[in-house]
Design a protein around this nucleic acid. Structure first.
Length: 272
DNA sequence: GGCCAGGACCGTG
DNA sequence: CACGGTCATGGC
């Protein structure tokens, strides 16, 4: 059990801001599974086996100082204030690299409800069952498991044209991931490495860098961010990266996520 | 039936 | 380098 009340943490903002796909809300809070471990978030507490405490502390980056990060961003751009307020408690997670690679490969030209369905299907079919409370959850399948499949084994999951990308990613990660010191690479080096995987372009790579590798100095640019930066800041699409770097500085990944969450969920201003 | 979904790929100009 | 067509699938 971990007490979350002394941390800036909103389950809703954190789990529903588009960075993760395996947390589900019920009448008692949220249930999630990551790294082969399940837990429940309820009433400001994280309920889990004692031996999993360190894992979840790392997953939620509970050592990070959010007040310092937000003060930094507000000084960079005071107009971020409504976004930071609306996204109060939104934490950027440190998710598993392999799971994040697959999740965001599946995100391409897709919508969030169906991304979740695809991932759940993948886990139910190829993951390991884990008993939690009164139900059975399924872990995210290993790289070796998926790498050992044929593309046709994924047909029932209806991944569309993305099935071959999943297979390419599995083969790549199974053969290279363990020998790469990801944390030692620069963001650009890690990006170029990830983009060797078919189905991983600039945007998907940047999401992986931000949501799995803790590269807070990347600014994933999707259709929403394109609209937002164009309409709010009148930034030409070509120069958005340079603009974000200059405007927000190191924590531009957080700026991106708060902007995304605010303008995507908070009615008005941006027409989708 | 057309359009859109946290895009990427591939072929042309 | 920039542009546009195409790619499965499902919901509206």
């Amino acid at each position: 059990m971990i007490c979350l009340k002394n941390h800036e943490f909103s389950p809703k903002a954190t789990f529903e801001c588009g960075q993760c796909f395996r947390w589900t809300a019920d009448d008692k809070g949220y249930v999630g599974i990551a790294g082969g471990r399940a837990c429940r978030i309820r009433d400001g507490r994280l309920e889990c086996p004692e031996e999993d405490n360190a894992f979840w502390r790392s997953y939620f980056c509970l050592d990070m100082d959010y007040s310092a990060m937000k003060a930094f961003l507000l000084e960079q751009d005071p107009t971020l204030e409504p976004c930071l307020d609306y996204g109060q408690g939104l934490r950027i997670l440190r998710q598993d690299l392999w799971e994040t690679v697959i999740s965001f490969i599946l995100s391409a030209n897709n919508n969030i409800p169906r991304i979740k369905k695809m991932i759940e299907g993948l886990c139910k079919k190829f993951g390991e069952p884990i008993a939690f409370e009164d139900k059975i959850l399924y872990s995210f399948p290993s790289t070796q498991c998926i790498a050992g499949l044929k593309c046709s084994d994924l047909a029932a999951l209806k991944l569309g044209y993305r099935d071959r990308y999943v297979m390419d990613a599995a083969v790549f990660m199974a053969s290279h991931a363990d020998s790469i010191a990801w944390q030692q690479l620069s963001a650009e080096e890690a990006r170029q490495t990830l983009m060797q995987i078919k189905g991983v372009g600039r945007k998907v790579a940047d999401c992986i860098l931000l949501f799995a590798l803790g590269c807070y100095d990347v600014f994933p640019q999707d259709v929403w961010i394109r609209r937002i930066m164009g309409q709010v800041y009148q930034t030409p699409e070509r120069s958005t990266q340079e603009f974000a770097q200059q405007k927000y500085g190191y924590y531009r990944g957080f700026a991106q996520q708060y902007l995304f969450y605010y303008y995507r969920n908070h009615a008005g201003k941006i027409q989708g």
